[in-house]
Each structure stands twice: as C-alpha cells, then as structure tokens.
Design a protein around this nucleic acid. Structure first.
Length: 1049
RNA sequence: GGGGGGCUAACUCAAUUGGUAGAGUGCCAGCUUUGCAAGCUGGAAGUUAGGGGUUCAAGUCCCCUGCCCUCCA
C-alpha cells in the first residue's frame, strides 16, 4: 500500500483565506491515520471493533435493490430486538468501525449529484460508535466532544450542536436532556434547536426511532458566529457527526412506545472529517482522492484537477474528475462485495454508475477505452488497508469492469447508428416541409435514385438507414448531398430548422440508455434541437404504462415478531425457544407459551375465530427447523391431546431466539399453556435433509474435481432440489460433471454416517479440509457436520491430512443419519449465473431415481432412431429431441443424448438435402424438355404440369429452368400432390410480358380460384395452391385464355 | 415486479402492404502476385433463438417460452 505521507493540495487559495482551527500536528494526518484514530479512541473506551459489513447484504429485504447505506445496517436486528442469541453480535454492548456505505438507487439516491459539488458521494465511509442498551446520551456526547477537540484539536468555537425541539402534534417532548449535556461543553449560542426533519431519526415508517443531535463545523471561523448557516447547505458550515438516541419504537398507525432497551447510533462521514482535519474546503481535495486524480490524469492526458465548480469549471473537466474518482471507488467496493453489474436491481444500479463514469471520461477528458479498468488497482491500494477483502481477488473485479466497459461500447455504437437513422429521417422530412413552405420544388434522392422526386408525393414514414447518402434538391438544383454524419447546420445553405422529436429522443433513452443530455450534445454538434417537452411527455407515458402493468397483492397477513413483541415475551417471562430437538426431528412434547395473531397476543385460538388467518405460536421447545442458511423451514402439525386441537404449521421463523410456528388452526382449539405434540411432516423433512447432506457431498466432490479454489457463494435446499453456487472461472466440462456426480453417488452408496456435533470454534477452524463460507461469521461453539468421520476424532487431531478425504463443514442445518437415505444424486443443471460464478442444481431420492429412469428410456428411444426410414425418422427425431430438452435429466446424460442426437440430425440433414437435390434435379430435367419444346414454339405463354408433389423447391427449380431458357415468356407450372389432393402452382412472368399487361400475382389468383385455392405474389413471380386435383385441366385452360386476354387487351 | 427493443451464415448486419433469405468480413479451392489485413474467379456455409397459431404462402402477423439489451419501480 502506498499512501502519500503528505496530502495533495489542489485549492491552495482557500488555505490562505481560512484561519485554521486545527493544530498543525493534525494537518499532516492522513485519512488512514484519522480512520485508525477514531477506531482506537472508541476501542480504548470499551468498544469492540466489528468490521464493516458487506455493502451488498443478501438478507435484508429493505435493501434488496440497493446497498448498505448507513453504519447501523448490520446492527439493525439489535435495534429491532430480533437478534438471534447465537449470533456473534450477541452480547456485544459497544461497537465501533468504519462502515462501507453506498448511496445509489432506492430512496437515498445521490447519484445525480455526484461531481456537481464537493461533498456528494455514491461510496463513502461512515465512522461510527454504538451502544446497545449500554451507555446513552451523556457518554456519547462527552466522547464526541473529547475526540474532536482534545484528540483532533478542533477549536470548540467552530462547533455547533443541535437538539430536537419537540413536536406537540406527535406528543414528542423537546430533548432538553441533550441540550443540557451540550451546555457543559459549548457556549449557549452554539446549541441550536432542530425540527422533526433534521433532528428526529426514523429507520422507516415503523420501527426504532428517536431524537438525534448533529454536530456542525464552521470551516471559516475567525470568531464569527455561524449559527444562522447551520443546516442551510452552506459548504463552509457542514454537519460532521450525527448522534442518534434510539428511544422509541414506532408502531403501525404512528403510535410511539418507549423501547425496553435504549441505544446510541452515531455516524461521521470519514471523507468530511478528513477534509476538516486536513483543512481542505472539499472532500475531493483530501488524500482519499488525490492519488485517484493523478492516475486519471496519467491515463487520460487531461489537464490537472483544479477543484472548480459549475461555470468556473470550464468544459466540466473537474466535475468529470470527481465523478470518475467517486464511481470507481463504488465499483471496486461493490463488485468485491459480490454485486455484478447486470440489468436488474442492485446490479443495474452498478451498471449505471459504471456507464456514467465511462461517459464522463470519454466526453470530458478524452479518455481511452479501458481507462476505468486501469483505475481499479489504485482504489485497491487506497482502501485495501482498511478493507482487506478488496485485495482478495482484484483480478475478478478488474475483469468484470473491463467486460462492462466493452459491452457499453457496443450499446453506444448501436445507439449511435439509431441516432443517425433518426437524424437522416428528420433531415429529409424537414427538408420537404421547408421546401413546401418556401414554395419551391423540394426533392430527395438517395443512393442515386429519386426516393421522392421533385414536387411529387411524400411519405414521412419512409425508412432511411444510418448510412444512406441523401441529396436534397430544389427542382434540379442539388442544394446539399451527403450522409447525415457529414451534416452540419452551420454550413447548410438554407435556414432550415431540424428537431429530434421527443419520441425519438425517448426511444434512444429507452432502448439504448442514452441519457437525454447525451442526445442533446450529439444533436447540438450538428445544429439540431431536441424536443425536451416531448421527451418528458414520452417518459411520463412510459412510466404510466409501467405502473399499469403490475398490480397484485396476495393479501396474506404477514406474521412476524417485532421488537415490541419480543420485549413483551421477555416481560411475560417466556424463555427463548429450545430448538435443539430440530436436529433429530422426532415428535416432541412442548407447551404453548404464546399465541400471536399478527396484532396481539391471545390466550387461545380456535377454528372459529382464527381458522382462516395465519397465526403464530411460540412453544417452550420445538423440533421444527426455522428457515436459515439457505435451508427452508419445516412444515407439520401441532396436536393438542387435551383439547383435540390441531394447528397446521406452514412455515417456521425465528425472531430474537423465539421460534414462531406460522400456520392455521385446522381443528378445534389451541390454548396457552396447553401441552402439544410437535409433529413434523417427516417425508418432507427427509427430502430436505437428503438434499442438504448431498449438498455437502457435492461441495466435497467439487473440490476433488475442480480444485481448492471452488469457494461456495450461496446455496438453497428445499424438499424438491438442491442448488449450489460457487466460484469457478469456466464452464464445468461434461467429463467433470460426470465425475462429480459419480463421486457423490459413490459416497452415498458407501452408507457413511453423518456426524454432527458442537465444537469450540478456535480448534474447529484448524480442521484440515474444512469447507467454510468466506466472510461468514460463525458462532462459538460452532456446529461441525462431518460425513464418515467422528467429530471427536477431528477435534482430537485437527491437522491430520486424512481428513481431507471427507466432507467436513460448519453447518446449522438438518441432515440425514446415513448417506444411503438420500438414495442417489442426479446433477441436473450446470450453468453460469455471473462472471466467475457457476450454479449446480441437483436432485436426490425419488426425484433423482425418476431422472435416471427418464434418461434410460430416452436413451433407448435415441438408439432406436438408427433403424428408422427417413420419412419416419424426421418426426421421431423431433419428438425425442423435444423430450430430451424438456425433461429433467442428469446433465451428463443429457449432454450425451444431445451429442448422439446431433449426429442423427447431421445424417438427417444430409439425407433430406440429397433428396431435395435429387428432386430438384429431376424437376430441372423434366423442365428442360419443356423448355426446349418451348424455344421452338411461337407461344408467349407456357403452361405445363409436372408430377413433383408439393415440393416447393423442386417446383421453383422447374420454373426457373424454363424461364431461364425462354427469358421473354411467361411460365406457369402445376404440380400434383395426389396423396394430399393438393395442387401447387407457380408462375414466372418476364419483364416484357409484364409490360404487356400480365402480372404473375393476378394470374395465379385467377388460376387458383378455379381449383378451390388461393395464391398471390409479385408481378414477376407468384405461387399458390388448390385443393382439387381433378380440376387442373380446367384451371390450365382458364389460365391460358385469361393470360392471352390480358396480353392482347 | 412491470414497460420498450432485440435474437437471421463463423462474425457484423440487410431483406418494401406477408410472396425466390442476401451483402461485407472470415473460411475453402483455383488463378494472379515474392511483403505490410493484396487482386480476380468459383465454392461451401442458414432449424431466420425454441414451440404453437393465422394463411395458398410467415424471417415478416398473433400467442407462449428462453436468452440479451434498455427503462421504470
């Protein structure tokens, strides 16, 4: 890592005009040092360092399409009171870190502002300290003041603190406590009241919330009072630290309740505090960005970064620097964390960021293709120290960025072609209108021919292409000619107005992602205008269409436990659920502790009152597995012997350690404190467990076949299938697939015992050959699942290389007892889901058996194809082919069948081709005789009948042969297909005969109508058919007389 | 989740109200030519993404599926 010891100064002038409040020692601190100082400060005060969570959380539904955007994201379950007791965060009272945040997409979207000012970012770091039901306002405020003024040496005279002024409408009192605490540190006129918007923090419409206190800093200082500028978007008086005091829980309907445990959540933007401590007026002038700017300059050859904004920033060069530097940080971080640029959700946000950066680079800095890719390593150097994960596989990140840059180039090129087509059309249309308005004779020629000759009719619908060379005329005078790319209004001899329509501009935006300003720039280059209002209208219309499309809601009540309910259960002395029986899955006697109907706790639930709705039941213990780690929840029943009540469990979820059995009463009544028997749907459980254990075997086999670099990236296990995603750079070959399937089946056949047992994390981590998910945090003690070797043996001698021959994983899921219960494994699908990530889907048990049986059956059918005649083969081949494609088969077998079918297809093709060629040859031969006879004849019209069936190609060959031999004549050939009682007929008419009034299309129509058929075509060539073979003679006769009538008439 | 556009030879793309699926590049062969993406002639190469429908006739129109691009939530 190379971070320059001295920060780069791009705006020296500001340093001169500002009186620095920061001690000279701090002025030389680097961003890395500042980050460390913050974390160390809080560690010294009893905080645990909890590393930044991923920016791309998979398990937070509120962030599915966006990114981690605040320091508290990973602590949300703590604030909500839903943290699982086995979580590593359980028991943490004080935490601190620097969290990676991305603000783009979703509600907080700063993307469009980035670059235009000195402080918006899509990626930033949030320094934070947290108290989870531990210290509160007094300590939080005291420490923030201490860090800022004592450690970092900021003059207190420059600081302003805000507190919540209260809101009578919501019955919220002013936060006078906070005001009083600040009174100990700051002058009275530096403590300011703030409203709901600025000083009351809420996570969402519901959930934890509370007053907050912001700290603002005045960059100018010099004894002035800047209180009036606080929260006024003044770049010199900026918020640097927000202390949130989580006091309340907001319920559905708006009611506020005081939380059982109160928390502190603080956030300080690293980029901002660094700008303050390095005495820079802009975040971009700090050493977090300086090295990036230097690299951008080196890669693009643009002038150096000047730090200018708005109109002062000539050509938008500085803006481009800021955009690119910001975006590349976001890209490297987000891609490292597992998001791939794509066309949906979070990945799409990323793609847009990348394209925005590329566009700014190309347009404003003249950057070459690939410059963004080359910038990525600099980000790794800059941030890799704080976030070591960036250095794990930078090659993958760089490869992805390179691919995206390239594919963006393609989309751009396609869009430019479309733009030029639009421009050509607009130019022609405008020319016509202009000419008419001038009272002259406008004309448009294209490719040497007059598309719209002078003063003739005109159609605005005429399609031009992007490379049409057009000439614009008045009468015979050519006013301008060339391609649209040559056009420039300033050099055009006539004062014509040309405008790109709003619809076209929107089409460019909608189909090729051209932002409207790009279209405008491209239009202005040639002197064209863009109809912006029309664009807005088209945009609105499209949004409306999009809205109309999807509106559905299953209306099912969501049954879950929130912080308030979890706290209530605590008050009621309900202990968290003992779910240790979930591993055995045997029927368990338990007692009902609480019944939650989605709105309140009830004493009992019966078929009459709640049978229709889903409700939740909490027991003291359970054998049900709740959804976790990619394994679906168990289903089954709770039966009450005493009351005869039965509760169907549809889903099982865990909230803060309480297992909620979700489902409906199907019989009788369930009452609190009743004893019930938990009874699993055992068949379903066995299927799930089979799939889960087999997933472990698959993971093991993958390493055996593909090597150690095969890291797990996700998995899903339910009662129907198993799915496993892993890192691998190329498709898994058919041979490898077969080998993997074989290894798994071999292990199943050996009937290995599946051992699982809790073990101390430290020792378990050292087990040789252990498979664990990277970046995952495991509880201590951790559950070790080992197939074929007892866990005690492993722990006794963890580093024994012998263990590498077995599947050993950390896993909290449920498994079968021995491997043969899974019966067999069918690897059905191998596919790529993102660059460098493959997915395998497989089946076990009965379903696997079915897949193998289906493959056997298809195999027989494919073999049987070899003995079929050509006629039968065609149909049978298609049938088998469809079945092979449609059926769920082991992938190895499917591959083999496809290959076998491929060679059959080749044979089939060759045979039918030979047949067609023979037929055509025969047709030609027959036709030749007729042609020779015709040559000597004086007849202008030749009508004949050949026996070619309904083979269109043969008929065509015959007609072509004759008309080639007698190019001045009109030819009609009938062909009978006795089998289907159909007649095919085709006609070819020479130019001279057309001139004399005979058109092939009309001729065919006349003729086929006699035979009960239809047909048509163009003047020179037409075809049709009839359904009455017996009438050929009559039809031919009519064709002859009708044709002569046309020619003579 | 929804809207719009697309999928044609190995590659890049054409194909008028539905009426004979083509061009350039590349490939193969021959000729010409001692050079840097050379010239001429000839040739092979297509399940028009897959399936269904309408029609005398579908690359073209309608429906379904898959994949890609793009926009909106």
């Amino acid at each position: 890592m190379s971070i320059p010891a001295r920060p780069h100064c791009h705006s020296q002038e500001w340093n001169l005009s500002m009186s620095s409040s920061v001690s000279s020692k701090m002025l030389s601190a680097t961003a890395a040092e500042i980050r460390t100082q913050f974390i160390e400060f809080f560690k010294e005060r009893g905080h645990d360092f909890v590393p930044s969570s991923t920016t791309c959380p998979m398990n937070d539904p509120s962030l599915r399409d966006t990114f981690a955007n605040a320091g508290m994201n990973q602590f949300k379950p703590i604030f909500q009171g839903t943290l699982d007791p086995t979580s590593p965060l359980h028991g943490v009272k004080r935490a601190t870190n620097s969290q990676k945040c991305i603000r783009a997409g979703g509600k907080h979207n700063d993307l469009d502002d980035v670059g235009k000012d000195t402080y918006h970012h899509t990626f930033f770091e949030m320094l934070g300290n947290w108290s989870f039901g531990d210290y509160f306002k007094e300590e939080a405020i005291g420490w923030s003041f201490e860090l800022l003024t004592k450690v970092w040496g900021i003059d207190p005279d420059r600081l302003y603190a805000t507190y919540f002024e209260g809101d009578p409408k919501q019955d919220l009192p002013a936060d006078l406590e906070t005001k009083a605490i600040w009174g100990k540190y700051l002058a009275e006129d530096h403590i300011l009241p703030g409203n709901m918007k600025d000083n009351f923090w809420e996570m969402g419409d519901t959930g934890p919330c509370g007053p907050c206190s912001e700290l603002h800093y005045d960059r100018i200082g010099g004894g002035r009072n800047a209180a009036a500028m606080v929260n006024m978007d003044d770049p010199d008086v900026l918020e640097i630290w927000n202390n949130v005091f989580i006091q309340f829980d907001r319920l559905e309907g708006g009611e506020l309740r005081t939380l059982p445990a109160q928390h502190v959540d603080t956030g300080m933007g690293l980029e901002r505090i660094v700008s303050v401590l390095q005495d820079k007026r802009s975040n971009y002038d700090t050493d977090l960005f300086g090295p990036l700017f230097e690299k951008i300059q080196a890669l693009t050859g643009a002038r150096a970064y000047n730090g200018k904004l708005g109109d002062e920033d000539e050509g938008g060069v500085d803006e481009a620097y800021r955009v690119i530097a910001d975006h590349i940080r976001t890209l490297v971080v987000a891609i490292t964390d597992g998001t791939t640029p794509s066309n949906e959700g979070r990945g799409y946000v990323l793609r847009r960021i990348l394209r925005r950066a590329v566009r700014y680079g190309r347009q404003k800095l003249g950057a070459p293709q690939g410059f963004l890719t080359d910038l990525a390593p600099t980000v790794v150097e800059l941030l890799g120290g704080a976030f070591p994960e960036l250095a794990n596989d930078p090659g993958r990140v760089i490869g992805l960025i390179a691919d995206e840059e390239e594919s963006f180039g393609k989309t751009l090129d396609r869009g430019i072609k479309m733009y030029e087509t639009i421009g050509t059309t607009e130019l022609a249309n405008s020319w016509w209108k202009y000419g008419k308005a001038q009272g002259k004779k406008p004309g448009i020629h294209s490719g040497g021919t007059a598309v719209f000759p002078e003063d003739a009719g005109y159609s605005e619908d005429h399609r031009y292409t992007h490379e049409d060379r057009i000439s614009l005329r008045f009468g015979d005078d050519v006013i301008w000619s060339g391609k649209f790319t040559d056009f420039n209004l300033s050099q055009f001899p006539e004062p014509i107005q040309i405008q790109i329509s709003g619809e076209d501009a929107f089409k460019l935006y909608d189909t090729y992602g051209f932002p409207i300003d790009l279209t405008q720039i491209m239009a202005e280059e040639r002197g064209l205008k863009v109809d912006l209002e029309g664009f807005e209208r088209a945009m609105e219309a499209a949004k409306e269409r999009s809205r109309q499309g999807g509106k559905k809601n299953d209306g099912e009540r969501v049954v879950e436990l929130r912080a308030e309910q979890i706290a209530k259960l605590g008050v009621l002395h309900v202990k968290t659920t003992d779910d240790s029986h979930k591993f055995s899955g045997h029927d368990t006697r338990a007692s009902v502790k609480a019944i939650w109907n989605g709105k309140k706790f009830e004493d009992h639930a019966s078929l009459g009152s709640d049978g229709m709705h889903r409700i939740g039941i909490v027991l003291d213990k359970t054998c049900f597995y709740s959804e976790m780690g990619g394994q679906v929840a168990d289903a089954g029943e709770l039966r009450c012997a005493k009351s005869g009540g039965v509760f169907k469990v549809e889903d099982t979820k865990s909230f803060g350690g309480y297992v909620l059995h979700i489902g409906r009463i199907s019989k009788g009544k369930i009452t609190c404190t009743n004893d019930v028997i938990c009874h699993l749907n055992t068949k379903r459980r066995i299927k799930i467990a089979s799939n889960h254990t087999t997933t472990h075997l698959l993971n093991f086999a993958l390493r055996e076949v593909l090597g150690n670099s095969v890291d797990q990236r996700g998995s899903l296990v339910n009662d129907e299938k198993l799915r496993f995603d892993f890192v691998h750079n190329s498709p898994v070959t058919p041979e490898e697939i077969a080998k993997i399937e074989e290894i798994v089946n071999h292990q199943i056949d050996q009937n290995l015992t599946v051992y699982s047992q809790l073990a101390p994390l430290e020792q378990a981590k050292d087990i040789a050959g252990l498979r664990a998910v990277f970046d995952e945090t495991y509880p201590d003690p951790v559950r070790v699942v080992s197939i074929g070797i007892e866990v005690d043996q492993l722990i006794g001698n963890p580093t024994n290389d012998a263990w590498k021959t077995a599947s050993i994983e950390f896993c909290g899921g449920t498994h079968i007892e021995t491997t043969t219960i899974a019966q067999s494994f069918a690897l059905t699908v191998e596919e790529g889901i993102a660059k460098g990530i493959r997915r395998i889907t497989g089946l076990t048990g009965e379903l696997a058996g079915k897949a193998f049986a289906a493959a056997d059956e298809l195999s027989k059918r494919v073999d049987a194809l070899g003995s079929l005649e050509l006629g039968e083969l065609k149909e049978a081949f298609q049938q088998v082919g469809n079945d092979v494609d449609a059926m769920e088969l082991p992938a190895a077998r499917k591959n083999a069948l496809r290959a076998q079918l491929g060679s059959v297809a080749k044979k089939l093709k060759e045979a039918s081709k030979a047949q067609a060629a023979a037929k055509a040859g025969m047709a030609q031969e027959l036709a030749m005789g007729i042609a020779n006879a015709a040559k000597g004849s004086s007849e202008d019209i030749i009508i004949t009948t050949l026996d070619l069936g309904s083979d269109r190609n043969a008929l065509e060959a015959a007609v072509a042969t004759i008309s080639k031999a007698v190019p001045e004549k009109a030819v009609m050939v009938f062909s009978t297909d006795a089998q289907n009682n159909r007649v095919a007929v085709m006609a070819s008419v020479s130019e001279s005969m057309i001139g004399r009034g005979l058109k092939a299309g009309d001729w065919i129509r006349e003729t086929t109508s006699i035979m009960g058929g239809k047909g048509g075509g163009r003047p020179n060539s037409a075809q049709g058919s009839g359904s009455d073979v017996g009438k050929i003679k009559e039809a031919a006769e009519h064709a002859r007389t009708w044709a002569y009538k046309q020619v003579q008439g």
